[in-house]
């Protein structure tokens, strides 16, 4: 049984949002800057991501949205500025150290392990565990097989939730672009992240599948997961994200609900009226 693509869960979302306002933000980005050679990709970017929200990050091409995701996740080192996660400074840390803290990301181009099956992709997504040590590999299989069985159950549950158990043992390299997006999302779910960074999760995805992914994201938000999502499709952003951060030319232009942003002339001029959106 599916939920209608148009049906979100406003009550649960609003409750989560109201609760999150009382807590310090999960992620605080302050004065973040980064340049590639002489090109300033991001400058003085400042915004918060609150608990239990899907915060949208929108802007025209070249606005610096994906660079911000790369800076938060450690893929790119910031030139200056601060990224605080749960109050701890994480700017400049390496990607795996940041992921260890509970920040997991997806990529602009679906980044799956093509030589692994879908199920194996999900198993790699699980948080690091003892069975992955060399000593476990050279020891008795019984020492880690029980934990792996638990992870397999969890992976099968996620696959069933997405209706993809039929491709569990297919190589990820054999999947369509949309399926790869789903695998990446499911793999991120296996990690049970505190903050999920989504870099254009609907890019190149069939609209019907995009609606299905949107429903899954709302379910995840209602279950308490926090997300920061870069997205060009404004109807999806309006459905999913509150608040929304608008970037242009590497800096944060405005922040608020989509309704608020649509009445902001500066935003309309920079993006909404500029035809850069979806």
């Amino acid at each position: 049984m599916t939920t209608s693509p148009g049906a979100s869960h406003p009550a649960a979302g609003e409750t989560a949002l109201a609760g999150s306002q009382a807590r310090p933000p999960l992620l605080r980005v302050e004065g973040l800057a980064c340049h590639f050679g002489g090109v300033l990709a991001v400058q003085d970017a400042t915004f918060d991501v609150r608990h239990g929200t899907i915060t949208g990050l929108i802007g025209p091409n070249g606005a610096g949205k994906s660079t911000v995701i790369n800076l938060i996740s450690g893929s790119t080192r910031p030139g200056q500025g601060s990224v605080r996660f749960n109050g701890d400074e994480i700017a400049g840390q390496r990607p795996h150290e940041i992921a260890h803290r509970g920040i997991v990301r997806t990529f602009q181009q679906a980044n799956v392990f093509g030589g692994l099956t879908v199920l194996e992709n999900l198993l790699v997504g699980a948080a690091p565990w003892r069975g992955e040590r060399v000593s476990a590999a050279l020891g008795r299989k019984q020492a880690w097989s029980a934990t792996q069985s638990g992870l397999l159950d969890q992976a099968w549950d996620i696959l069933r939730r997405f209706g993809l158990e039929g491709i569990a043992n297919d190589y990820a390299r054999a999947l369509s672009g949309g399926q790869r997006r789903l695998v990446e999302l499911m793999r991120a779910l296996m990690a049970q992240p505190a903050l999920l960074l989504l870099d254009e999760p609907m890019a190149g995805v069939h609209p019907a599948l995009a609606a299905s992914i949107a429903d899954r994201l709302l379910e995840m938000r209602d279950a308490g997961m926090t997300m920061l999502m870069v997205e060009h499709e404004l109807r999806l952003v309006e459905k999913l994200c509150d608040p929304v951060v608008v970037m242009a030319r590497g800096t944060v232009l405005a922040e608020g609900s989509m309704a608020e942003l649509q009445s902001n002339q500066e935003v309309v001029d920079a993006y909404l009226g500029g035809g850069g959106g979806g």
Binding site: S73, G74, S75, R94, P95, H96, A99, H100, V104, R105, F107, N111, V112, F113, G114, G115, L116, E120, N121, V124, G125, A127, P128, E132, R187, A191
Partner: peptide, 16 residues
């Protein structure tokens, strides 16, 4: 085998 396919994705999942 995951590292063989995508180093960046492995790092993004918390492994060095």
């Amino acid at each position: 085998r995951a590292v063989r396919d995508s180093e960046s994705a492995v790092a993004a999942l918390g492994r060095n």
